[in-house]
Simulated assay, not measured.
Amino acid sequence: MTSKKRSNSDKSAILNLHRQPKKTTIGVANKTAPPQKISYSVAHAIPGRIRFRIPRLVIDCEYADKLKQVIESDSRTTNVRVNATAASIVINYQPGIISDDQMRSHLVNLIQTAPNIVVPTQATAKSIVGVIFDAIINLIDSTRNINKARNAIVYHRFRTDGWERLLSGAKTIIKRLKSAIMFVLPNKRGDKVGLQPFKLQAAGVDDAL
Rank of each mutant, 00 (worst) to 15 (best):
S3P: 04
K5Q: 12
S7T: 06
N8L: 14
K11L: 14
K11M: 09
I14D: 12
N16M: 13
H18C: 12
R19A: 15
Q20L: 12
P21R: 13
I26G: 01
I26K: 08
A29Y: 09
A29G: 03
K31S: 04
A33R: 12
P35C: 04
K37A: 11
I38T: 09
A43C: 02
A45F: 04
I46L: 13
P47C: 07
G48P: 02
R51N: 10
F52P: 03
R53E: 15
R56W: 05
Y63E: 07
D65E: 14
D65F: 08
K66L: 04
K66A: 05
Q69N: 10
V70E: 00
V70W: 00
I71P: 00
S75D: 15
R76I: 15
T78D: 09
T85N: 10
A86G: 07
I91V: 15
Y93R: 04
Q94H: 07
P95N: 08
G96T: 12
I97Y: 11
D100Q: 07
H106Y: 13
L110G: 04
T113G: 03
A114W: 03
T121M: 04
A123R: 08
I128M: 09
I128S: 01
I128F: 01
D134E: 13
R144T: 14
R144F: 06
N145L: 13
A149G: 01
A149P: 00
V154T: 12
V154C: 03
Y155T: 08
H156N: 12
H156Q: 14
T160G: 03
T160Y: 05
D161M: 06
E164S: 07
R165Y: 05
A170L: 11
A170G: 01
K171Y: 00
T172G: 03
L177I: 02
L177G: 15
K178Y: 02
S179G: 06
M182V: 02
F183H: 09
V184F: 13
P186Y: 05
P186F: 03
K188F: 07
K188Y: 10
D191N: 13
D191E: 11
K192G: 02
Q196S: 06
F198N: 05
F198E: 05
L200V: 10
L200K: 02
Q201V: 11
A202N: 01
A202F: 04
A203Q: 09
A203S: 13
D206Q: 10
L209P: 12
